[in-house]
Design a protein around this nucleic acid. Structure first.
Length: 356
DNA sequence: AACAAGAGCAACCGCACCCTA
DNA sequence: GTAGGGTGCGGTTGCTCTTGT
């Protein structure tokens, strides 16, 4: 059964709002408020408009403290960082930018920011040949890497040197770090994001998902024994792989999240197009690319980056900077791995990402 | 000057979720 | 438990303005 229309379509005005209509709406809401009912508002205010149209006009244009005009560089960075991590959740992004509306940000992204970044892509020989990605989430990770590492000139492998700070993140996470240049600031940034969307309950978006999601979108860790990936929220207890093995002797600790769990998140609308399994592989049948944080199995026997995960349901927010440094040094000292660089093989990613 | 193409942006549409009866 | 109304969100459309030829 179809829905009843919210208003009489034949008798409502559409198209641009006149100054008189704006004045009527503003005057009414200033005096009466919305009364929590947009549908009946236009009639009460003497407007021949759909309630939804009134709401949109108010929220996007007439309400106080709306900021119009150019976006600042800081706003650009915030938008890019959040887009890289959560995708096109414009309302959440807008919540981080006082005075900006989701519609504003969406338009800005689609018309300017995206092109600005694409321009950077075209100017960067290392990835100018990159296929056009049909889904924004793929673009997001690509952009974030570009924002961070556009000085990289290597044609096939970008090297992410984090030696100045001694901690390591996926590029998407570092896109936030470039804004704040400090892990604590990163924590603060995510705290703010989480509190704004979580309503005091279970956060809608776990930081680990931001990072993993971004990695899934566009990155593969290079097959380089000296590279190290740090993962938070590792569910080590469920470490397993398709062939039943879990090779901790290779200093690889599986994240091991079950696909179904992430499926549930997706159903909740919290993760889009993110799938995880215990093994890096492509699900040919469902055309989905899956990522794992590394378990030894027949598909990746020679895939031995040092992958460290921490604690069930832990996030970076649960750790202080010093503790993270300590964890890194204690782990790396036992594995004799060099932790100074992050290596991502973008060409390999190109081959592996499946579009859907 | 006239026209076409592109860019920018306000507004619309439809879907999904939430709440209530 | 469920149907229906209200609301919010993201994708898309189409109008207007600008730029290029």
């Amino acid at each position: 059964m179809g829905r009843a229309p919210c208003c009489d379509k034949a008798n409502v005005k559409k198209g641009p709002w006149s100054p008189e209509e704006d004045a009527k709406l503003k005057e009414y809401i200033d005096k009466q408020g919305t009364g929590g009912n947009w549908i009946s508002l236009p009639q009460k205010a003497g407007l021949k408009r759909c309630g939804k149209s009134c709401r949109l006009r108010w929220l996007n244009y007439l309400r106080p403290n709306i900021k119009h005009g150019e976006f600042s560089d800081d706003e650009d960075r915030i938008i890019c960082g959040l887009f890289a991590n959560i995708g096109s959740r414009w309302s959440i992004i807008a919540a981080q930018l006082p005075g900006r509306t989701d519609n504003d940000i969406k338009n800005y992204w689609n018309t300017k920011l995206k092109k600005k970044l694409m321009g950077m892509v075209n100017n960067n020989s290392s990835i100018s040949h990159q296929r056009k990605l049909p889904h924004q989430h793929h673009q997001a990770a690509s952009f974030s890497s570009l924002l961070l590492h556009q000085t990289s000139t290597s044609p096939s492998t970008a090297s992410y040197n984090c030696s100045s700070t001694n901690y390591y993140y996926t590029p998407a996470a570092r896109s936030v770090l470039t804004t704040n240049n400090d892990l604590l600031e990163l924590n603060s940034s995510f705290s703010s994001l989480l509190s704004s969307v979580g309503g005091g309950g279970v956060p809608i978006l776990q930081p680990q998902e931001c990072f993993l999601g971004s990695m899934q979108n566009n990155y593969q860790v290079n097959k380089d024994s000296s590279s190290t990936v740090l993962m938070f929220g590792g569910d080590q207890a469920s470490c397993s792989s398709s062939d039943g093995s879990c090779n901790n002797n290779n200093q690889i600790v599986s994240h091991g999240k079950e696909l179904d769990q992430y499926h549930d998140y997706r159903q909740m609308g919290n993760l889009q197009n993110c799938f995880y399994s215990n093994n890096n592989r492509v699900d040919e049948e469902n055309q989905k690319f899956m990522i794992s944080t590394g378990c030894s199995d027949h598909q990746q026997q020679d895939y031995k980056p040092n992958i460290i995960t921490w604690g069930d349901d832990q996030t970076p927010l649960d750790y202080g900077l010093e503790e993270i440094k300590q964890l890194i040094s204690s782990t790396t000292s036992t594995t004799s791995n060099n932790c100074n660089n992050f290596l991502f093989d973008e060409n390999k990613t190109e081959e592996k990402v499946m579009y859907y």
